[in-house]
Amino acid sequence: MKFVQGIKADVTADIVYMMCPMHLLKLDDLIKQIETGQVLEILTDYDGALEDIPAWCEKTGNEFLGIEETEDYYKFYIKKTSS
């Protein structure tokens, strides 16, 4: 897993405690709303996202920048590189 720090996001979605697969639905929804080159930040406590989000990025042609861990949840950073 790629760990990052201090990445500035253009859009943030706080879905901490929301059930799986909300992380993928939110991703799908928000990636359509941002411009190519912009960065999306997803906050979630769902462990399954550690596999799901990088896999989703690979499948959809977006760049997975990495994660930052906090005490209670993860911050995922995704750069829109698909058109």
Binding site: I15, Y17, M18, M19, C20, P21, M22, L25
Partner: peptide
Amino acid sequence: GGIQESGR
């Protein structure tokens, strides 16, 4: 369970 009510 599922994602009804925005996963809440």
